[in-house]
Design a protein around this nucleic acid. Structure first.
Length: 933
DNA sequence: GCTATCACG
DNA sequence: GACGTACGTGATAGCC
């Protein structure tokens, strides 16, 4: 087919794509030999869209992947420093480049490269040819150089972000249309490609100048007319350099190509070739998906034994999931066989199925067991007739199930047998369910926590994810059994045969993951982290969650009513001030009222096109007008009512009268816990009105709530890690640390300290923990940026150790792609070498992680030791809020509890670590949490 | 399902 | 000089 009107050419910038994929995606290696293939997989996944034909009207008639070839191009002849500051290609990316070419060929897509030419120029030439022939062009790339080409039927597509870039997008980026992009680039230069441009002029200024003068040539000829002296001089003095820059950034649209557009016609891939290549790469789920799209059988990829040499997994050969045998256990004899086998083996994987996700209300429906990969059994205990079946019989237990009591009585000795390891995925869930059935499961291993200790920061730790990633197997989605949304059924309504396949598979997967991950602990030096900080927390948290905390419904309900009244009054007032009724809770409507209708200054639209109406914006507006101030009040009440006084009531368990949160151990990257359903780690405290919600959290009659919290633990850890003598001394002397910092920084004696100066020092102290920036501090303190930067400079001058810590930590993260806490917890930082704003995020996260993570480790150690320490006291640990533990204790044992728990908390780093600063724990007590805190 | 907002340490 | 920024979370409401 000849190329012309109606044709649509897709040009994929291959080199740029794999560079970005390499940095954006996790470092996947081929299991059999450790060959890095993450970028290749990302590339193939992108090409998969062409197989799936889910492009709609944009499906290409012609397509090619274009690569760079050779490092020396005509631009180096013009300027020997062109791209001279490029980093070496990462070691792990190098071997993936030829593989990417092979991938392109396997997809039967034209693969083009020309020695001595950049992909950009080939793409430019092809795009112009295609456009001139009357066709459409989509350039799959986000390289800003290619933005010159946009318009007249040419658009760009950012495959990583799944976003089309058209002429409008170009204007957004460069401030000028595509035809003037070169001019702006020539002025602004490009640090990545080492294009010099005009010193002192960035994209913003360049766009301004080009828009004013019409073109670069015009600007340079009339440079005398530029008003700003500095700019004028630069433009005149650096004219040659600017003109050279233009030549460097200008794409060559007129290359002699040894092929034609017709050669790029889209062709269907040969399934054997393509699937063969994917199998060779060992892309399990990808080859399955592509096989499905092609209507072919997925290739069988053997579960090869990874080579020990590469230091990664060394799981024994595990059988194919397709060959697995999953059976039902329907009688005591069969169950006994499984129990005996588990005893003999010394371990088993186990998974419980229940009627819901809430362990406090869900009922046990069945238990699955696995001792050998590929061989698992499901023990159904409480399956009932289908919900839509005969009403009369629907609650009857289905035939062929063991009596639950009998089965659990047989299982109990095994599950409590100290010589048999029980393996689960997220064992806290199963432990709680079993505890409610009288079984104290121990000892345990948890594949979720293995993954967390090994790979925290790299990816999530849910079973579906781990299975796809490490076993190349997509588990049966639970939705296939129970549906979703309104028509969702509970697991006890699932047919037993279906339940067997699903439940047994989960136990099978868990066992396989355990065999794969457990041996890696040692090699990654996280055995102690897993054994001391992750695993022992499971029973401790299970106990706390089961205990719950008593919440007084009447208190909440009264507050809800009061809030509702106040809100209604405020709402009326707001509508009056606005002159019309609108939904105060809608940021979109509020923005339009404030900035469009009322014409207030300072309206800024975010990326969605809506005005920002956050608290900081409204606070600024509140000086000008009453309405924003009322909205702030309304928002506060609305938050308190919906999230706390209303929602908390729903969480009171009718059986216990208490609220039972659930802590996720592997949720936060730094090692912190996260509290969900409900979140009891963000109960209001900072505002007077909000703090009253804590009055609803109460102790039982005759008991008291006690709260113990670490004082300034993160700053103490910073002082220790960064070795800041002045801070250490201040902590040893028990000084007010923020006042001490202020005194040191501003040379103000402590007894002359003003609250304002102290406040600023406090903001800086916190900023340091977060990876301070002038911008962030300025915003926080609402002071000019230059002033904030001045504070930071002075701070670093007085505490040079902190700057060293930040630099050292960043350098360590860049080298190792991870940081560590003082207790050896590893937090991976894959984004640390990213470019653009993401690099800043990653850097600050890397600076923060060892500090926040060490604090998290310390309180984890305290929590693990706490139950034994207070075993003889009539006390129970209920909640953790990052640096605070809340207990419920009999009135007459309060003092003893405080003394004991404080000792455990203050000594938590021992014996592994002795901090250079003391840990101080403050205590409070009362009938409710507001009093105790 | 995404975004904005706001509650906590 | 320019870019876009404080770290870590979870719940709710609005909106497509």
């Amino acid at each position: 087919m000849s190329f012309g009107k109606g044709s649509h050419l897709h040009l994929i910038d291959g080199s740029a794509f794999i560079f970005r994929a390499f940095h954006a995606l996790p470092p996947l290696t081929r299991k059999s030999d450790g060959l890095p293939v993450g970028a290749v997989q990302g590339f193939c996944d992108m090409l998969r869209r062409y197989i799936a034909k889910d492009h709609g009207r944009d499906f290409p008639t012609h397509i090619a992947v274009i690569f760079d070839k050779g490092s020396h191009t005509f631009r180096n002849e013009l300027y020997d420093q062109y791209k001279a500051n490029r980093d070496e290609m990462p070691e792990d990316l190098r071997p993936q480049i030829p593989l990417t070419r092979r991938a392109t060929e396997a997809f039967n897509i034209a693969c083009k490269e020309i020695e001595g030419f950049e992909a950009d120029d080939i793409i430019a030439t092809l795009a112009v040819q295609a456009r001139d022939a009357g066709g459409r062009v989509t350039i799959v790339s986000s390289d800003k150089d290619l933005m010159q080409l946009v318009g007249g039927g040419v658009e760009m597509f950012d495959a990583m972000k799944n976003r089309v870039i058209d002429a409008e997008g170009v204007v957004e980026k460069f401030g000028v249309g595509p035809e003037r992009v070169v001019d702006v680039q020539a002025l602004a230069g490009d640090s990545v490609d080492n294009v010099p441009g005009a010193p002192g002029i960035g994209i913003k200024t360049a766009a301004l100048l080009i828009n004013e003068f019409g073109s670069l040539e015009e600007l340079l000829d009339r440079a005398e007319e530029v008003k700003q002296p500095k700019r004028r001089e630069t433009l005149i003095e650096k004219r040659d350099q600017i003109e050279l820059s233009k030549k460097l950034v200008q794409l060559d649209c007129d290359m002699d190509l040894p092929f034609t557009l017709e050669d790029l016609e889209a062709r269907d891939p040969d399934p054997d070739t393509l699937l063969g290549f994917l199998a060779e790469m060992e892309f399990r789920s990808l080859s399955k998906r592509i096989a499905e799209a092609l209507g072919e059988e997925a290739p069988v990829i053997p579960e090869t034994a990874p080579q020990a040499a590469d230091g990664e997994a060394e799981a024994e050969d595990q059988p194919d999931f397709a060959d697995a045998t999953y059976t039902a256990i329907r009688d005591a004899d069969t169950l006994q066989v499984w129990i005996d086998r588990a005893r003999e083996r010394g371990y088993l994987a186990i998974d419980t199925e229940t009627t819901g996700l809430n362990e406090m209300t869900a009922d046990l429906v069945g238990v699955s067991l696995c001792i050998e990969a590929g061989e698992a059994a499901y023990l159904p205990l409480a399956h009932r007739g289908a919900a839509d079946g005969d009403l009369f019989n629907s609650d009857e237990l289905t035939e062929g199930q063991m009596d639950a009591g009998e089965a659990l009585a047989l299982l109990k000795p095994l599950l409590e047998d100290p010589s048999v390891m029980k393996i689960g995925q997220n064992m806290k869930y199963d432990a709680k369910i079993l505890a409610r059935n009288g079984i104290d499961i121990a000892p345990i291993d948890d594949t979720m926590l293995l993954s967390y200790a090994l790979h925290g920061g790299l990816h999530g730790h849910g079973m579906d994810m781990l299975s796809e990633r490490y076993l190349g197997h997509k588990p049966i989605p639970i939705k296939e059994l129970i549906g979703s949304g309104k028509s969702q059924i509970t697991f006890d309504r699932v047919e037993i045969d279906k339940a067997v396949r699903y439940a047994a598979e989960d136990a099978d997967i868990t066992l396989r993951l355990w065999k794969l991950l457990k041996p890696q602990l040692h090699r990654h030096h996280v055995t102690r982290v897993y054994e001391r900080l992750e695993r022992p927390l499971v029973p401790v948290l299970a106990d706390m969650e089961r205990a719950g905390i008593k919440v007084d419904r009447n208190t909440l309900s009264r507050m809800s009513g009061a809030f509702a009244q106040k809100m209604a009054a405020l709402e009326e007032e707001i509508h009056e001030l606005a002159g019309e009724k609108f939904n105060v809770g809608s940021p979109k409507q509020l923005g339009e009222i404030l900035f469009d209708k009322m014409g207030l200054e300072g309206g800024k639209k975010g990326k969605t096109g809506a005005y920002a109406t956050g608290a900081d914006v409204l606070e600024d507006l509140a000086t000008e007008h009453d309405l924003p101030a009322r909205v702030l009040d309304w928002r506060q009440l609305s938050k308190l009512k919906s999230t706390y006084t209303d929602a908390l009531q729903e969480h009171i368990n009718p059986e216990t009268g208490r609220v039972h949160t659930s802590y996720s151990i592997a949720g936060a990257n730094t090692g912190r816990l996260a509290s969900t359903d409900p979140n009891l780690q963000n109960i209001p405290v900072r505002s007077e009105e909000g703090r009253r919600i804590r009055e609803a959290f109460v102790a039982e009659e005759g008991k008291v709530l006690v709260s113990l919290d670490y004082s300034q633990i993160e700053l103490r850890i910073l002082a220790h890690i960064a070795g800041i003598d002045a801070l250490k001394e201040a902590f040893r002397d028990g000084q007010d640390i923020h006042a001490a910092t202020a005194s040191e920084m501003f040379n103000v004696p402590l007894d002359e300290m003003t609250p304002e100066v102290r406040r600023q020092a406090k903001a800086i102290n916190f900023g340091v923990i977060y990876g301070i920036s002038g911008f962030g501090l300025a915003r926080n303190l609402r002071i000019p940026r230059a002033e904030a930067q001045g504070f930071i400079d002075r701070y670093f001058e007085r505490f040079p150790g902190i700057r060293d810590y930040m630099n050292d930590t960043t350098a360590f993260a860049k080298e190792h792609k991870r940081v560590e806490t003082l207790f050896g917890r590893v937090i991976h930082t894959p984004e640390i070498s990213a470019s653009g704003p993401r690099a800043g995020f990653a850097r600050r996260a890397a600076i923060n992680a060892p500090i926040q993570g060490t604090a998290a480790d310390i309180i984890r150690r305290a929590m693990v030791r706490m139950p034994a320490a207070i075993a003889d006291l009539p006390a129970q640990m209920l909640l953790q809020v990052h640096d605070e533990l809340i207990f419920e204790v009999a009135e007459d044992a309060v003092d003893e509890l405080i003394a004991t728990a404080r000792e455990v908390m203050e000594a938590a780093p021992h014996p592994v670590l002795t901090l250079d600063v003391p840990l101080v724990v403050d205590a409070g007590q009362g009938a409710n949490w507001a009093e105790a805190h």
